[in-house]
Every structure is written in C-alpha cells, then in structure tokens.
Design a binder for these strands. Structure first.
Length: 470
DNA sequence: GGATAATATGACCGGAAATT
DNA sequence: AATTTCCGGTCATATTATCC
C-alpha cells in the first residue's frame, strides 16, 4: 500500500486544486478497496480494519445534518463514506439503503452525488432521512420559524394528541403547550418545510419529557438510593430544569441548531439530491413509496445497508413518543407498526415449529438451544432469520449485474447464545449466486457499541462488513 | 498546550401486571 | 392458574469543555 500512502501524502503536500485533490482521494480509496479484495481473494480470511483510522480526516460528532435528531443504533458515517467514495465512478449514481434508519447512508450518498433510494418500516426514520437530505432554503426556514412563534403566543387551544401514558412523561401544562406548538406546525403549507419543523418538534418532545436521556427507550428519570449523591443531585437538577422549561424557547434553540446544520451542509454541498422513498418493507421495494410498481430487477448498481441485528434494538419503542406526537402511529397502532418491522421485540406466544422454517441445520440447532432457555426468544430469532432471508431475496433481485452489495452487521447474543448474523447473510446471498468479495472486521470502539445491560445481555464488540458482487 | 473533568450517546431482557 | 402484554432499567467510551 506504499504507493497509495505516498499518493495520500501528496494530497497535503502539493498545492493542487480541490477537484484534483478529490480525484486523487477517490482513487486512493478505490485502490484501497481493490487491494483488500485481492488480499481476501488470496487468503479467504476476514481483514481487520479501523474505519475511524482509515478515514481519519472525517471527524465524528456533530457534522453536517447527521445530528439533526437522535436515533438509536446509528451507523458509523466513515463506513458509508468509504464505500461511496470507492464507487464514485459508477455510471448510474444510485444507492439503495432498504434499512435507512436515521439516514446516515442517505446523507453521505446525497453529498457525494448519489441519488439515495431508501426504505424503512419506521415512518419517523423515513421522515428523518428526507429532512436530513433536503437542501432547504434557509431564509424560508427562518420566516416559518418566526411565523410559528407569532402564532404560538396567540393560540389558546389545540387538538389533544394521544400519547402513551402522558402523565408519566409530561407536565400537564407542557403537554398542552406542545399541542399548541404542534398546531402551528400542522398549519405550515409547504410539506418539505413542515417535515423539517416536525423533526425539530420531535426532538423537543424527548428533551422536555421525563424520559431518561441516557436510555434509548422511554424510561422515567428518577433518583435512587443506590446512586451516589452527586448523581442524584444531577438528576434532581434536570428534573427541576424540565419543570421550568419554556417550550417555545427550547423549540427555537433546537430549530436554530438545525438551521445551522442545514446551512453548513448547503455551503459545503449545494447540489445534493433528497432521498427517494422506495418502500416501507425491505422485502418488497417499489419505484416510489406511494405506487405499486415494483422496483425493476437488476436496476441498482450499489446497495449499502445495515440491517437490524436480531431483536437487539427496540426501534419502535425507542421512538414511541415521537410517533405518537407526530401522529405517525397512535398508542394503539404502535403494536401493528412493530409487527411490520423486521427485528421486532414482541411476538404473540405460539409454539416453536422448526420444520416450517427451512433454515440451515446449524441455525435450527441454535434455535433449539435458545428454546430450551426461552421459547419466545427462539421464535423471535426464527422470525428474524426467515424475514432477513426474504430481504436478501429482494436485494439480490434488484441488484444490477456486477453491482455491489455492502452489508454492515454484528453478531448478537440471544439468551447467552451467539447469533451469527454474518454467516447467515453470507449463506443467503450465496443461494442467489452473489459472490462474497470481502469480509472486513472493525472492532467498534465507538458509540455504536451497546454496553452490558444485565446478566444475560452481552456486549457487541465488533462490526462486520460484507461485500458481495452479483 | 496538555491534563482532567464533564457530557453525550446508545444493535439488551426479565419480571410485574393484565387478561383470559 | 396460565398465558400474554407491557413497561422499566446502565455504563463504557468518544468528544467536548475546563482548568492549570
């Protein structure tokens, strides 16, 4: 890799114009990927990689519109960045992420000149991805922000919004003020700008709730005897802050920060395309979200995605307050929304039937082991594996000949047993004759890592990146 | 400018409560 | 009494802020 490194050195040493620097950098990343694939072809062993080190010039933290709204289990932007840059010479600059989540791949794709095609079961994820990738007119956002403040102080009534357990999460007066604020947002005529303010509002509903900000799912923040006096004092301080919070003032703080993020992104990448929604279910993709024309076979040159890992994260429950507030799902609809999501946390109790599943023998054995400890966990895992294999069927179908599929995933624990998501996905793609070109392993010393929560839950210590070619 | 403290962030289940 | 649903709960680490 000596030549590549010296090329990279040249990037900083010589006074090249910026487009030339970009080209050299793209070439370097392209060659890095080729070299890793050659190495994998020779040795057939996974290659260790540290994406943070490889893409060291990409700072983590609050960059562009990445942090416009909190969302669980965000992908490391470095991974999306690397694979998009390495495929910059595609003639058709399309990239599909059927599990778009908060839109990390979509944002990186849009700033690098790709049209992102996205799907997700969670309507909040789709809204967030759209807002993240839209090059808003800043002046228009500021005008609407002022109009909202103007209306907010005049409106006295607003429709009641149905929230799960509202008294647990909000002061009654705050709930009412939030409803009035939401009324002003609902009256915004332009749909794109309305989406922007809805996302800001959604952040606010978490910020002024009594939910512990340190836990992804809503959990009431409260002091405990076992905590140290310092921790308890901090908790009390936050509880006091919530009680005295000024709704419109906090809203404007969030709006200003997000306008700043959009401004920065507009300045750096003025010509970027908004993500196009192609479905809610990764198992059946369409040309548009609102029609019934299936996405054509062999039409997508690049897929970059990170699917849910088993039932590891409670995406629906983690966004339940937002979903209720934005009326994307009422409290009663949360369950049915979860039923549409792959990697769900709940399942109605019925006996485990292993013969129906048609899963590989070693996975059947694993499910038996899990069932011995907890039959419900085994059924959730079985459902997950069956649905993921259907996802692979769909991705293999829409991928163009010679197209690449990048899958970022981790292995998680179920009842103390390791679930090898990576091996399972490899077997699924190989059924469709997609060639496994590369396995990368990154020890994630990042915030993507969930820590040990209880006796049986374990730490996910590394992420696997699989590269397939059709 | 380097050390240290504070802050922000987030790929797990089990058991209580409700229902049948 | 059995089954099903619902809901509550952490801590390691990267990044940022503050101190000297």
């Amino acid at each position: 890799m000596g030549d590549l490194n010296s090329n990279l050195m040249a990037l900083s040493s010589y006074a090249l114009d910026s487009t030339k620097k970009e080209d050299l950098l793209d070439q370097y990343l392209q060659e890095t990927l080729c070299q890793m694939m050659d190495e994998y072809h020779k040795n057939q062993t996974p290659i260790d990689i540290d994406f943070r080190k490889l893409i060291h010039w990409l700072r983590a933290g609050d960059q562009l519109t990445h942090q416009i709204h909190p969302y669980p289990a965000k992908l490391l932007p470095h991974i999306a960045y690397f694979f998009l840059k390495a495929h910059k010479n595609l003639t058709q600059k399309l990239v599909l992420d059927p599990f778009c989540g908060s839109g990390t791949v979509a944002l990186e794709a849009s700033i690098h000149g790709f049209l992102p095609l996205v799907a997700d079961a969670n309507p909040l994820a789709l809204l967030l991805t759209k807002v993240k990738t839209t090059p808003y007119c800043i002046e228009k956002l500021i005008r609407i922000k002022e109009k909202i403040s103007y209306k907010y102080i005049r409106y006295k009534v607003a429709p009641t919004i149905d929230i799960v357990n509202p008294d647990l999460w909000y002061l009654p007066e705050h709930k009412k003020q939030l409803e009035i604020l939401l009324r002003t947002i609902e009256e915004i005529v332009d749909q794109e700008e309305k989406a922007f303010f809805k996302i800001c509002f959604s952040s606010l509903t978490k910020k002024v709730s009594f939910a512990d900000p340190a836990i992804s799912v809503p959990v009431r923040l409260k002091t405990k005897e076992k905590f140290s006096p310092t921790i308890n004092a901090r908790i009390n301080k936050r509880l006091d802050w919530i009680k005295s919070a000024n709704i419109i003032q906090e809203f404007n703080i969030i709006v200003d920060a997000n306008i700043e993020r959009v401004t920065e992104t507009n300045n750096k990448y003025p010509n970027r395309s908004t993500a196009k929604q192609v479905g809610i279910d990764a198992r059946s993709l369409f040309t548009n979200l609102n029609d019934s024309i299936p996405m054509p076979d062999n039409s997508v040159p690049l897929v970059i995605t990170s699917p849910p890992y088993g039932s590891a994260q409670k995406y629906v429950r983690a966004s339940s307050l937002s979903l209720n507030w934005l009326e994307l799902a009422s409290p009663k609809e949360l369950r049915s929304l979860e039923e549409k999501s792959i990697g769900r946390e709940h399942l109605r109790k019925t006996p485990l039937h292993l013969e129906e599943s048609n899963l590989p023998e070693d996975y059947v054995q694993l499910l038996k082991k899990i069932a011995h400890k907890n039959e419900l966990r085994a059924r959730i895992t079985q459902k997950y594996l069956i649905e993921m294999s259907q996802v692979v069927d769909e991705i293999a179908r829409v991928t163009a000949p010679n197209g690449r599929v990048i899958f970022v995933l981790g292995n998680n624990q179920v009842c103390g047993e390791t679930l090898r998501n990576d091996r399972f996905i490899i077997e699924c793609f190989q059924k469709h004759h997609l060639k496994l070109k590369l396995i990368l392993i990154d020890d994630i010393k990042s915030r993507g890592l969930m820590t040990k929560r209880n006796r049986t839950a374990s730490v996910i210590s590394r992420e696997t990146v699989l590269v397939f070619e059709k």
